[in-house]
Amino acid sequence: MKFAILVNEGPYQHQASDSAYQFTKAALKKGHEIFRVFFYHDGVNNGTRLTVPPQDDRHVVNRWSELSKENNLDLVVCIAAAQRRGLLDENEAKRHGKNANNIAEGFRISGLGQLIEAGVQSDRLVVFGD
C-alpha cells in the first residue's frame, strides 16, 4: 500500500517527528511504499543540516536523511513554511540574496501542491503533529 506522511512539528520540541519516523520505518519494513514525507508548519525544521544535538541523543535530522538514502524516500519541505522559518536551499538562498543555505541531505524544498498531490496519489495520508 502507498502511504503519505505529513509532519507538522519540528524536531525535539514535540514527539511528532519521532512518531512519524518510527511509523515510516515500520511501514517500510512491512513492505509498504512511502510516496512522500511532507514537512509543514514547524515541521520544516526537521530539514536543517545545522542541527547539532548532544552526542547521547538521537539525531532527528540525520535519521530522516539516512532513512531517505536507504529507501529512496522523498522528503519534501514546504517552501512557504520554510522561508518564514529561515530554511533555504541553494537556489532559494540565491534568489533571496542570502549568503548561506541550510537544507539537509535528502530533503528538497517544494510547494504545497506536493502535499495535495501526495494525498491524491497515496492510499493513505497519516498526519503527525501537535
Binding site: 507538522n8 509543514y40 508548519h41 512557504a80 513554511a81 510547494g111 504545497l112 501542491g113 502535499l115 495535495i116 498531490e117 494525498g119 491524491v120
Partner: peptide
C-alpha cells in the same frame, strides 16, 4: 499559533487540484 493561517494556505493551493 500559526496553524489556522497555514492550513488556509493549504486549502487555497489545494483548490487548483480540483478535488
Amino acid at each position: 499559533s500559526i496553524y489556522a493561517l497555514e492550513s488556509l494556505e493549504v486549502v487555497l493551493i489545494g483548490a487548483a487540484f480540483e478535488q
